[in-house]
Design a binder for these strands. Structure first.
Lengths: 186, 186
DNA sequence: TCAGGGGCTGACCGATCGGTCAGGCATGCT
DNA sequence: AGCATGCCTGACCGATCGGTCAGCCCCTGA
């Protein structure tokens, strides 16, 4: 039953990603992951400090990219913040749609944990950027509809090719954000 | 500790709605609900057949309205289907945003249960209606962005007044759907 | 040849879950 | 008074969760 190969670490990670994407983080037990890999639950916990460590490793790369977008957005304002924010987030969501899928709906609960507190702060700044920092409620509603909608669409259409998903999402974002700042062209 | 009043049923229901909205359906235990009511867990299960019965009763009304929208949508096509679908769903989401909030992200898992199989079918028909039944992938992506985004926005802005939330969401929906069928006017 | 260590395991732990059950305690009808 | 009924409870159940631990197997290098 045992693989006796040092790549077990990666196999566990891949299996966890698959299971999380189907049944969610909470809905997936270490037993489930172990069964999919073909090893024991203890082996999973030998390679990873805990269930949360598994999730953290799976999310490390997309979170790093999100942080980069956050920093890129910091000095921007108005129409440019909106454009860069929208394009940056669509790109992020499309690239890491499998990782987004495995968070499916557990965003609120998981982000409430102190481990991911900075993520919540970043997403709030992203929403502010998408409004062009107007602070108007209607604009914030629009921005949230886009962020949540794009995330869910990426999770749902995980099997669709990037170059088919990305332009469609960009088009929706542009349409939804279009009238926010009429000065904007391009 | 006991209330000894026949309205315990309603108190449990209200407490469950409050807890579900904060920690989600899965994240809320019968103990949590009982503690909030000030009764024992056994009392909760005396008034309700099970945890799922609690959820079913909380969702009964919004699901009935969704079914009504589904029937209203059945004979429609093209631009009219899109308009009625968008307005109907925004109205539904705004009216029952507290119920939507308590599903927060658990939609996929909960709707996967056979109990809610018809809900999934209805939401697929709703997406088809929002595309004007074109069947194009880009249109289906747009529709899903809207459905998921509006749901999440309603959950997030549960405290915003209806007459502030509804027009903002309708505006986003109209903007996002606008170019789908250029023949459409109004 | 044999010691050492990395990889892996079954057995086990305490906690918590949803749910069951027999019985207590008022109240109201006969 | 006696009985039935509705409401509620503590104690308990089996299942499952994430996580721990002592020890086994096998490969490697001295």
């Amino acid at each position: 039953m045992a693989r006796h190969t040092p790549q077990t670490h990666d196999e566990i990670l891949a299996a966890a990603a698959r299971r999380f994407a189907v049944t969610g983080y909470r809905g997936t037990s270490l037993q489930d992951i172990a069964r999919e890999v073909g090893c024991s639950k203890a082996t999973v916990l030998y390679h990873f400090a805990g269930k949360d460590a598994l999730l953290a490793e799976l999310l490390a790369q997309p979170l790093a990219v999100l942080r980069e977008l956050d920093e890129r957005l910091a000095p921007l304002g108005g129409a440019e913040a909106r454009r860069v924010g929208a394009e940056g987030f669509v790109d992020l969501a499309v690239r890491f749609r499998r990782e987004i899928a495995l968070l499916r709906g557990e965003f609120p609960e998981l982000l409430a944990q102190p481990t991911f507190a900075h993520v919540q702060a970043m997403s709030e700044r992203l929403i502010a950027a998408l409004t062009g920092h107007t602070g108007r409620l209607a604009d914030r509603i629009t921005a949230l509809v886009l962020l949540a909608g794009i995330s869910e669409a990426c999770a749902e259409f995980a099997d669709v090719a990037e170059d088919e998903l990305r332009p469609a999402l960009l088009a929706v974002a542009r349409r939804a954000l279009a009238p926010l700042d009429p000065v904007d062209n391009d």
